[in-house]
């Protein structure tokens, strides 16, 4: 049995990489990959944690009297997460597709005009458009 610390460190590294991916990339698809890494870090954490005896860290010292959940929560949670991640990616890709159709690119920097502090911000874009035409 490996020490619990190993998976935890790995999970941290994965989470860090995921966060970095989300923050550093401007390409929507690459950002999504970062997100996947983040979710899998969580998965790793869950599965690693479920190797502990019933009661988790809190019960480590107490040998007896712990109630075990028959549903093996860590693992089942991981399966839920995988499902969620799949759904997430499904929605995300649909949006990315929409983005690509609208702007011809999947760079996030291409769509900033809604941000109030962005250079391309206009208060009432539709009116502005109508006036421009």
């Amino acid at each position: 049995m490996i020490h619990l610390l190993g998976p935890l460190v790995l999970a941290s590294v994965l989470a860090g990489l995921g966060v970095y991916g989300i923050l550093a990339r401007r390409n929507a698809v690459l950002v999504l990959i970062g997100a996947e890494l983040l979710l899998n870090a969580a998965n790793l954490l869950l599965v690693a944690a479920s190797t502990l005896p019933a009661g988790g860290l809190a019960a480590l010292g107490q040998a007896t009297g712990q109630v075990q959940d028959p549903l093996i929560p860590g693992q089942s949670m991981a399966i839920f997460v995988i499902t969620i991640a799949a759904a997430e990616i499904g929605v995300a890709l649909a949006i990315v597709l929409l983005l690509f159709r609208a702007r011809g690119t999947v760079e996030l920097t291409a769509v900033q005009e809604l941000g109030e502090a962005s250079a391309t911000y206009t208060e009432t874009p539709q009116t502005a458009k109508a006036n421009g035409q």
Partner: peptide, 23 residues
């Protein structure tokens, strides 16, 4: 993106909670 980032945080948090309490 906000939702995904937040989901990541939520799941990490849940993982830690689970780690601590085992449930």
């Amino acid at each position: 993106l906000t939702a995904i980032a937040s989901l990541g945080m939520l799941l990490l948090g849940i993982g830690l909670l689970f780690l601590a309490t085992g449930s």
